[in-house]
Amino acid sequence: MSNPPTEFYSAERWQNWIGRIQDEDIDPEDEDSARLLLNLQDDTAIAVAKIVAAYDDGEIDQETALEEIQDVREIVLSEVDIDDEEKLILVDGVQTSLVCVFFAAEEYVADGPAEDGTVDDYVGAAADAEAEENLDAALGYAAQAGTLIIDGEELDMSVAEELEYGLVTEWINGLDSLQSAMSDPEVVEEDE
């Protein structure tokens, strides 16, 4: 095995984003604010995509890949120290979207892509499970959709528009970031 990158993501990197959000006037209706939040999400999805790619390319083994994903998850899903309640809610939305990205990547590394359906099938199953308030199953189905996206299948975002807003739509938003990251894993510049 060749030498893998020493670090896919760092707590410092995450804190830089949080610091920017804390310092700026954030208005989700404003394009620049929305882009900042999306960049925060995409940046994390790119780190996850790079871990999965390194695993697929044989640069890191399964155990290392799972540990790396876990490390990024712990950084990104830890409690954020922001005083502003609205900003906290917005960052929480990004964290919620990314939950499914982590589960999908872990599932993919552990078991490979789902075999019994399409991305749309799993998204539909996730929405149905959420409607029945079975959130564990909903997350499981959304993660299965994510394994297929990692494997190269397309997520059609118009599917999300038909769903009632909830956790599944948040997760699909995260999977959309993952899909972009898988096709173009370029680092989002923090100083844009």
Rank of each mutant, 00 (worst) to 15 (best):
Q41F: 00
V80D: 04
G19F: 13
I82D: 09
I51W: 02
D176F: 13
D61R: 05
E162M: 08
E79I: 10
E29P: 00
E31S: 07
A110P: 07
D27E: 08
K50H: 05
E189L: 12
P5G: 06
I51N: 01
T169R: 02
S10L: 04
P185D: 07
A125R: 10
S97I: 04
L167M: 14
E189A: 12
S97K: 09
W14D: 10
E162T: 12
L135V: 15
A125F: 08
Q22C: 09
E186P: 06
I26Q: 00
M1S: 15
N134R: 09
P5Q: 06
P4F: 09
R35Q: 09
T96I: 08
V168G: 02
V159E: 00
A137F: 04
W17K: 07
W17C: 05
D184H: 11
C100S: 06
A11S: 15
F103A: 11
L77K: 07
D116Q: 09
P28K: 06
A138C: 04
F103V: 12
Q70M: 08
V159R: 00
V72M: 01
Y55G: 06
E85A: 10
D25F: 15
E7W: 08
D184T: 13
T64P: 08
G19Y: 11
W171P: 04
I26T: 01
Q70S: 14
R73N: 14
G152Y: 02
A125G: 05
V168R: 03
G58I: 07
